[in-house]
């Protein structure tokens, strides 16, 4: 009997999904749907927050007042995106504190791209152009995701991300036509960030265990491989325009498929970095933990002050 009721409710839920209705926080949803969303949205939020570090690394060294303001504004946007996404996630019945604990314990992941170091100013260009570029492809499709708060968050985030991508491309373009040293830095940044960027879309569809339900529930609207292809197709030409070379000897236009063919990704590296063994995994998490620990006394003081004020008011 119990099972029957549940099945009926799941059926009704699926009908709503199939009719493209948005699911709101107080609506009934299968536990698996809720869990999948918490995992995906928190991973997205953590990526925004950890992603502040590799770019934050260059704010103090940005080479002009304009570059400094743009970079800082961009990193600040990411903090803001993290904030919307944590809030969207909280509507699913989990607190921000729990989400942060999951990040610190390693239970929750963030995008592996941020476990690579930023070694020159050109990396600010590469991150904006490629990393934000890849993120946009994914996020544009997530604007249509079935969970209301996530979908609305994405609409707002996409507007800012497209500014980020343009600023990154502008840095790359400027450096690619600059001094020989600048051009070398730009090419080097592209060489280092290309493969990690296309790995941002995750494993191939054949190796992606969670894609099935996520597509059925319309949390995800396109598969990893579809999104990756879309990104590559739009980026190749952008590299050509500014005279940089994408480091993939197998990259070529396939007339029949009307898409670019590209080389095989280094999946050993991908899984290594996902599982904590990348160049900056420890550094990024330690930075976040340290900031959190350093802020403990401040949060305690603010709480204590607020409690005193409440006592006075009553």
């Amino acid at each position: 009997m119990q099972n029957n009721i549940l099945t009926m409710t799941e059926e009704k839920f699926q009908i709503r999904i199939d009719k493209e209705e948005k699911i709101e926080p107080k609506d009934w949803m299968p536990e698996g749907y809720r869990k999948h969303l918490i995992r995906q949205i928190s991973q997205h939020a953590h990526s925004e927050i950890i992603g502040m570090q590799p770019e934050g690394n260059w704010i103090s060294r940005a080479p002009s007042l304009r570059a400094k303001m743009i970079l800082l504004a961009k990193v600040q946007d990411e903090a803001g995106h993290g904030l919307y996404l944590y809030s969207a996630c909280e509507t699913l019945g989990i607190s921000r504190q729990e989400l942060v604990s999951q990040l610190h314990s390693g239970k929750a992941k963030y995008s592996s791209i941020f476990n690579y170091p930023t070694l020159s100013w050109a990396d600010m260009g590469a991150i904006g152009w490629l990393v934000d570029g890849a993120a946009i492809v994914n996020q544009v499709s997530l604007q249509r995701t079935s969970f209301g708060p996530y979908s609305r968050g994405m609409v707002k985030i996409c507007k800012e991300e497209s500014f980020h991508q343009r600023q990154g491309y502008e840095i790359m373009a400027q450096m690619a036509k600059g001094t020989s040293e600048q051009k070398a830095m730009a090419q080097d940044a592209l060489n280092r960030f290309w493969w990690p960027s296309i790995m941002m879309f995750g494993p191939n569809d054949s190796d992606s265990p969670r894609t099935g339900n996520a597509m059925k529930w319309k949390i995800k609207r396109k598969t990893n491989d579809e999104l990756r292809q879309e990104f590559i197709d739009k980026t190749v030409n952008q590299a050509e325009i500014i005279g940089l070379t994408i480091p993939d000897k197998d990259l070529k236009w396939n007339e029949q498929r009307q898409h670019y063919d590209f080389g095989e990704m280094d999946w050993d590296e991908f899984w290594n970095v996902v599982n904590g063994n990348g160049p900056c995994n420890k550094q990024r998490l330690n930075h976040h933990k340290k900031a959190h620990d350093d802020g403990q006394w401040v949060r305690e003081a603010a709480k204590s002050y607020a409690q005193k004020q409440e006592l006075i008011a009553n």
Partner: peptide
């Protein structure tokens, strides 16, 4: 002040 970026005691304060 920009040195505080990603090091604030809360996310709101970081912003």
């Amino acid at each position: 002040m920009s040195e505080w970026c990603s090091k604030g005691p809360t996310l709101e304060e970081d912003i």
